[in-house]
């Protein structure tokens, strides 16, 4: 994906989030992640994206 296309992806994602609305936001993003997992060439690519997305976020409070 070119930088210009990535920028369009950014804008479309923002527009889609606004269209879906706050109530279904988490469900929408999780569905999107699953569909993008299916579009990944292999599991490693998806696992790397998962790790990168988690990096820097505080872990959930302990079980």
């Amino acid at each position: 994906m070119t930088p210009a296309e990535f920028e369009q992806a950014y804008e479309r994602l923002a527009a889609a989030l606004d269209a879906v609305g706050e109530t279904d936001e988490t469900l929408f993003l999780t569905r999107l992640a699953l569909l993008l997992a299916d579009a990944c060439p292999d599991l490693d690519a998806f696992a790397a994206a998962l790790d990168a997305a988690q990096a820097g976020l505080a872990p959930a409070a302990g079980e």
Binding site: Y10, A14, A15, D18, E22
Partner: peptide
């Protein structure tokens, strides 16, 4: 200055 919730989340 993201004008909507969606823009703000992505930003």
């Amino acid at each position: 200055t993201p004008p909507s919730r969606g823009e703000r989340l992505v930003r």
